[in-house]
Amino acid sequence: MSSAFHPVPPPPKTDMDTRFNPHMLTIPLIITAALSLIGLAQWVCGGDWLTGLALVYVGVFVSAGIGVYIALPRLKRPMWRRVIMLMVGGLLLVIALWSDHGNMQIEGLFFGVLIGAANYILLHYAIAKIVGPLAFGRMWCGWACWFGMVFDFLPYPYSRFRRPAKWGWLRYAHFFASLTAVLLLWLVFRYRDGASGTSGLLWFVVGLALYYVIGIGMAFAFKDNRAFCKYLCPLAVLLKSGSRFSVLKVDGIAS
């Protein structure tokens, strides 16, 4: 066995693996009820049923979902988290594809900054991947990512071997390669359509397909569902920077 790979033992069982604590559900359930009431009021008083339904959905699958995850015994947490992630990530992906907000890939962020528009893209990145991690850590990765929601259902939830730290630099190479490509298109070829419109949406869809293919391929090659996330995802560059100072940290088995 090469010395470059270090075996990682499975997480040990503890008393919490079999103990359910319903008291941990109090605050998440209050949040769920509050969002549901606000959504109902928006629907009845404002006539905006779509926003109302979205608020109820978010309340149920995020607030209650995370609350149940925290309260469950540790060995029962992984599947629950995957189900919640599929529901939340799936909804966000559908909204991103059908709301005509353009390219949600990292290149869309770069184009959005350069053109000073693409407000939805900038807001998404600010909340989920730049400012959000300061409060909630890498919650996007574990609860809402439309790539992770697929990768987590692959057959390798626990990595048998941990790659050397230098593998992590691949994500930085990916990040700066994307930035360089956008700058070349912007400055040399005068390309301005990478954030929004049909061109931006096409960029997003092609990027989605490539990331899924590469991510699934890496999962099977490395026998690690999240190999792409650990070593190649450019979003981790943004997320890791903020999550170092995260206020909220959830302890438990994440796979």
Score class of each variant (00 low, 15 high):
95 I>E: 06
142 G>S: 02
128 A>I: 00
52 G>F: 10
197 G>L: 13
1 M>R: 11
226 R>E: 14
38 I>Y: 12
152 D>K: 03
174 H>N: 15
236 A>P: 11
225 N>K: 03
129 K>S: 00
23 H>T: 02
47 G>D: 12
196 S>T: 13
129 K>H: 10
174 H>L: 15
210 L>C: 05
144 A>P: 01
187 L>N: 04
47 G>C: 15
43 W>Y: 12
205 V>Y: 07
105 Q>L: 08
171 R>C: 05
38 I>R: 02
40 L>W: 02
47 G>N: 13
214 I>A: 04
104 M>P: 05
13 K>E: 10
133 P>I: 07
19 R>Y: 10
231 Y>T: 00
39 G>F: 09
98 W>A: 02
225 N>P: 06
150 V>L: 11
24 M>S: 05
222 F>Y: 13
34 A>K: 05
150 V>Y: 08
195 A>R: 01
105 Q>V: 07
80 W>E: 04
30 I>H: 07
157 P>V: 00
222 F>A: 07
254 A>Y: 15
82 R>V: 04
53 L>H: 15
241 S>G: 04
24 M>T: 10
208 L>V: 01
142 G>T: 06
67 G>S: 10
202 L>P: 06
28 P>A: 00
8 V>C: 14
51 T>C: 03
219 A>D: 02
213 V>P: 08
160 R>W: 10
4 A>G: 13
235 L>T: 02
196 S>K: 00
154 L>Y: 01
82 R>K: 14
193 D>S: 01
102 G>S: 03
118 A>H: 11
61 F>W: 12
78 P>L: 03
64 A>L: 15
3 S>T: 15
98 W>E: 14
81 R>A: 13
38 I>V: 15
245 F>K: 07
219 A>F: 10
242 G>A: 09
210 L>H: 14
245 F>Y: 14
62 V>M: 10
89 G>T: 06
127 I>H: 06
85 M>A: 03
64 A>E: 09
22 P>C: 11
154 L>K: 03
217 G>N: 07
70 I>K: 13
123 L>I: 07
11 P>W: 10
156 Y>T: 09
119 N>R: 09
122 L>V: 14
86 L>W: 15
27 I>M: 08
200 G>F: 00
101 H>D: 08
86 L>A: 10
34 A>T: 08
170 L>M: 15
